[in-house]
Design a protein around this nucleic acid. Structure first.
Length: 321
DNA sequence: AAACCTTTCAACCGCTATGGG
DNA sequence: GCCCATAGCGGTTGAAAGGTT
């Protein structure tokens, strides 16, 4: 893209160092050095490799271009689908998305998203908006999943919305409640924002902002007070359905975590399956969750270790904590 | 053929997190 | 606790390539 010759010198961060596109000679120097002596900090690498570059520039060049394990070429449809799915879960956390795509860099994925996927989704969004514009109430309702968009959704089947409710009626210990609560919440995006409502994007075109909210999480962890979060995913095109996660303690001092999302979301389907395998109660309720916390839906022993062992194999979710 | 516009993507910038002194 | 260096991240820029008029 940029001419290798068209470099400048900068003095802000890197002193009088070369800037701009890398020449083949520079690439050779860095590659040879990294393959033979990859140690020390990046400023040492730059110096020892004989490069008039700052360490930061060397690091970026290596990570994004020279690394031997990089996969070059176009994204496969599978990779594209995975990126869309992960973005629906993680938002613009490119490095986390890249961690699930071996050989791809965060920069590459970010560029691909901004130049290709975003545009495509926007086009599909405008198409969908046009096709549903005759029904104002529908266009402002919670959208449902369009299988062609890998986790993104249209507004056309919002009535299929379902709730997913695991209920642990065997009174897990407070520390386990804390662990489970954090595990479930951390598997979903936008939860670190704290108690303040934060707009994170436009919810469908013209229907107002999405908010990320978690209230009283710390209070819950300390005192058993209910915490909840409402999540809309970031983006300037229409966004996936609002996710809702809430935690509660019922009359029997049992922890309940409620997630609602689309019925055909494989992520939640898989969680349901796994929780069932460990004899943890599951409820799906298309009408709502209002009364579920008062119900004793199931009981069972909570084997958190086994649960984590299985759930950690999910390809799309990082459950490490 | 040339001018103009759009897309792509490598590289930079600014910021935050982390660790050592 | 403060300062500094470094690593890492996400947003942005801008030049080349490609497409259109």
């Amino acid at each position: 893209m940029r001419k290798p010759e068209a470099f400048s010198t900068i003095n802000k961060n890197c002193g009088k160092l070369r800037k701009g596109l890398w020449s083949p000679e520079e690439d050779d120097k860095l590659m040879n050095y990294m393959l033979n002596n990859a140690q020390g900090c990046w400023s040492d690498v730059a110096r020892n490799a004989g490069l008039q570059r700052c360490g930061k520039s060397c690091r970026l060049r290596w990570i994004n271009y020279l690394r031997p394990d990089l996969k070059r070429g176009a994204f496969s449809p599978q990779e594209e689908e995975l990126i869309i799915h992960l973005h629906s879960l993680l938002g613009n956390r490119w490095s986390q998305i890249a961690a699930s795509l071996p050989g791809r860099t965060d920069n590459e994925i970010k560029n691909f998203w901004n130049s290709t996927i975003k545009k495509r989704l926007k086009n599909m969004s405008s198409t969908t908006t046009t096709s549903t514009s005759t029904n104002a109430s529908e266009s402002s309702s919670e959208p449902s999943k369009d299988p062609n968009m890998g986790g993104f959704v249209s507004t056309q089947h919002h009535h299929q919305h379902a709730r997913f409710v695991p209920i642990f009626a065997s009174s897990p210990s407070p520390s386990m409640q804390t662990t489970v609560f954090n595990t479930m919440l951390e598997s979903l995006p936008m939860l670190e924002h704290g108690p303040t409502m934060q707009p994170i994007g436009e919810y469908f075109e013209g229907t107002g902002p999405c908010f990320s909210q978690i209230d009283n999480k710390d209070s819950y962890l300390e005192n058993g007070v209910v915490g909840s979060v409402n999540i809309g995913l970031e983006g300037d095109m229409f966004v996936p359905p609002l996710e809702n996660v809430s935690a509660s303690v019922n009359n029997h001092n049992n922890l309940s975590i409620t997630c609602n999302r689309e019925t055909n979301n494989s992520y939640f389907d898989d969680i349901s399956t796994i929780l069932n395998n460990y004899n943890v109660g599951i409820a799906e309720n298309k009408a709502g969750v209002e009364n579920l916390f008062q119900e004793e839906l199931a009981t069972g022993e909570w084997d958190f270790g086994e649960f984590m062992k299985d759930i950690s194999s999910f390809p799309f979710v990082d459950f490490s904590f």
